[in-house]
Design a protein around this nucleic acid. Structure first.
Lengths: 240, 240
DNA sequence: GACCTCTAGAATGGATACATTGAGTTCATT
DNA sequence: AATGAACTCAATGTATCCATTCTAGAGGTC
């Protein structure tokens, strides 16, 4: 009954590891993309037959997601996608802002003309792919470009643990893609691009503290937008 | 065959949740305390009969620990306790320093005379329980007192997500208890206490930035000591 | 004598079967 | 008619069973 095989089961990391990690990645992707809405029940048998596997890997995958804080597992009542309160979003983005700020400080030491060029290109891509996909489901191209900008700085910073910490915070709740908010509001999108430009300028000037504060402001701003989004959508949960 | 029941299976969080989380906590505790040395193989059957449960909860618990980064699960070769390289320790403590620094900034806004008194008491406890337990196994009382100092600041800061991020970093590798290093070296212990005092002073003066920098220096210092410990002990792995 | 290969054993990964618990419904009693 | 209790059903939690794979050892060949 291979109704819907794992999206990335064989091709990308087929050599890699067990079915469990693929299963976890598949479930996480569907939650982050919004395909599985927040607040919805995650029934093991459903997920199992959806992914074409047994319950065992699904259970272990759910444990991984639980450890990450994305889902919540109640005693014997199953797992639900955590529906974050707006203040939780603000808390998380305060943490992320600090971490991304540190990223900039470290990146200043290792910045090169090539890196600056790549950053500007990524930012241009964010601008270019404006009205990309409808705000429906799946990750939009503008999201990917936005992630690319930040990920590039993480790489340049050269602290794997730091990048991981940011990733952990980001994956703690779905729709982390603030780009989803950006799509709806062109005004916010412009602000976002301008903030990126200011960060690049500070990095180019090798002004670590300015880069840090610009990045912190940028992330806090994005967090505020996302928190507002959650406030509005707070009613639309439980199998919208 | 209830040879060695779960240390905290029934009494503390008996109401809480499934066997899995207790199992994960038990394994994590034994790794962090050093009872299970770094680099050692974690065989599922051994853990199962050690904790008096079946293999199933052990497997799920291992997944949780894998998600936390404490252990590494190879394809079909089982799980091993990760042996962190010294540079990984330094990276992690750079992240932790930033986060704990932010904790101080936030704590300044909410600090009260009571809190300052409790912090000083905790620090005195660190000093008092000097030659507590032999550096053998199990968590020492000085470790607990040290944790208490930091945890108290986390609580006052009032950002759960921030506290969680610090906890995640801290539990990423064993012997996180820098107190273990402190025990061996009275000189480091004195430095540690003095750094704590400076942090309390800055908090009392409501000088957020000074509290931040003092805390960052304190954590970086502790990380450096722990990294050196790992450098020396790098040979003593694999079932010491 | 050294190296390669084949086989046997053990440990993990995955699946299924059984027990337990919570929830929903229905029936009986007030 | 409303409320409470008991029963049924469904979903999770746990244990056992089977397949797969990695490793180690023994034997044979070059």
């Amino acid at each position: 009954m291979d109704t819907a095989p794992l999206p990335d089961a064989d091709s990308p990391a087929g050599k890699g590891k067990a079915l469990v990690d693929d299963t976890a990645a598949a479930i996480r992707a569907r939650i982050l993309s919004g395909e599985i809405p927040i607040g919805s029940q995650l029934r093991q048998v459903e997920l199992a037959e959806l992914l074409g596997v047994s319950r065992t890997p699904v259970r272990e995958a759910l444990r991984q997601l639980q450890a990450g804080g994305l889902i919540e597992v109640l005693p014997n009542r199953g797992a639900v996608v955590r529906v974050p309160a707006p203040w939780e979003v603000r808390e998380a983005y305060e943490v992320r802002a600090e971490l991304e700020g540190l990223t900039c400080v470290r990146a200043v030491r290792a910045v090169t003309p090539d890196v600056l060029r790549e950053l500007r290109e990524a930012n241009e891509t964010v601008r270019t792919v404006s009205g990309g996909s409808p705000a429906g489901e799946g990750s939009s191209p503008s999201t990917a470009a936005n992630d690319c900008f930040h990920t590039l700085i993480h790489t340049v910073a050269g602290n794997r643990r730091l990048a991981r910490a940011i990733k952990d915070v980001n994956e703690a709740f779905p729709r982390n893609v603030s780009a989803l908010v950006l799509q709806d509001n062109p005004r916010h999108r412009e602000d976002n691009i301008r903030e990126h430009e200011r960060i690049v300028e500070a990095l180019a000037a090798e002004d670590a503290e300015r880069a840090r504060s610009e990045m912190k402001a940028h992330v806090i701003s994005a967090g505020e937008q996302l928190a507002r989004w959650y406030e509005q959508r707070s009613a639309t949960v439980f199998r919208g």
